Computed example of a mutant assay.
Amino acid sequence: MTTELAPGTAARAHRAIDTLHALTYFVPEGNEEYTAVGLRPGRMGYFAARSAAMGPVPAAVVTATFYNFHPALVARHIPRAWTLASPDDVLGARLRVVDRSWRRLLGDDVLTGPEVAEAADLARRAAGALRPEGRTLYAAHAELPEPDEPHLRLWHAITLLREHRGDGHIAALLAADVSGLDALVTHTVTGRGFTEPAAKATRGWSDEEWGAAVESLRERGLLDADGLTPQGLALREKVEATTDELASAPWRTLGADGTARLTELGRSLSRQAVAAGAFPPDVFAPRR
Results as ranks from 00 to 15, higher is better:
9 T>C: 10
232 G>L: 02
206 S>I: 08
23 L>I: 12
242 T>W: 15
11 A>M: 11
235 L>F: 10
164 H>C: 10
33 E>Q: 15
85 A>D: 09
11 A>C: 02
212 A>R: 09
42 G>T: 13
239 V>P: 07
68 N>R: 02
4 E>Q: 09
69 F>H: 07
144 L>N: 04
36 A>I: 14
52 A>T: 15
92 G>Q: 12
287 R>W: 07
172 A>R: 00
270 S>H: 05
282 D>M: 08
147 P>A: 11
99 D>K: 04
65 T>M: 02
116 V>M: 01
62 V>R: 15
265 L>H: 07
267 R>L: 03
167 D>V: 04
41 P>G: 12
192 R>W: 05
90 V>W: 00
109 D>T: 15
261 R>Q: 02
76 R>A: 12
49 A>T: 03
189 V>N: 02
255 G>Q: 09
28 P>Y: 04
153 R>A: 11
135 R>M: 14
93 A>L: 05
251 W>T: 07
85 A>K: 01
83 T>L: 13
221 G>R: 04
63 T>A: 12
44 M>A: 12
84 L>S: 05
273 A>H: 07
188 T>M: 04
276 A>H: 13
245 E>C: 03
135 R>N: 03
211 G>N: 13
63 T>K: 00
153 R>K: 06
174 L>T: 14
151 H>V: 12
228 L>H: 01
6 A>F: 02
57 V>L: 14
41 P>W: 14
240 E>V: 05
99 D>H: 08
27 V>W: 08
245 E>S: 11
256 A>L: 05
142 A>E: 11
201 A>I: 08
37 V>P: 03
265 L>M: 06
13 A>R: 11
214 V>S: 04
119 A>C: 06
22 A>Y: 02
231 Q>E: 13
90 V>M: 07
184 L>C: 00
220 R>C: 01
6 A>R: 15
16 A>F: 11
124 R>V: 08
16 A>S: 13
18 D>G: 04
159 T>A: 05
216 S>W: 03
45 G>I: 04
55 G>K: 14
34 Y>T: 03
47 F>T: 01
122 L>I: 14
111 L>M: 15
114 P>R: 08
18 D>I: 07
91 L>C: 09
154 L>G: 02
285 A>R: 05
168 G>V: 01
254 L>K: 03
67 Y>P: 02
161 L>Q: 01
12 R>I: 10
152 L>W: 06
240 E>W: 14
91 L>A: 12
71 P>Q: 08
280 P>I: 12
222 L>Q: 04
112 T>M: 12
274 V>S: 14
16 A>P: 07
21 H>L: 10
86 S>I: 05
191 G>E: 12
179 S>N: 06
22 A>M: 07
172 A>N: 02
175 A>F: 10
176 A>N: 03
204 G>Q: 02
136 T>E: 15
120 A>P: 11
206 S>H: 14
6 A>E: 15
224 D>M: 10
234 A>G: 14
116 V>W: 02
157 A>M: 00
110 V>Y: 11
259 T>H: 06
23 L>P: 00
155 W>C: 00
169 H>C: 06
281 P>G: 15
103 R>E: 02
256 A>F: 00
205 W>L: 09
78 I>M: 06
99 D>N: 08
99 D>E: 10
201 A>S: 12
270 S>E: 00
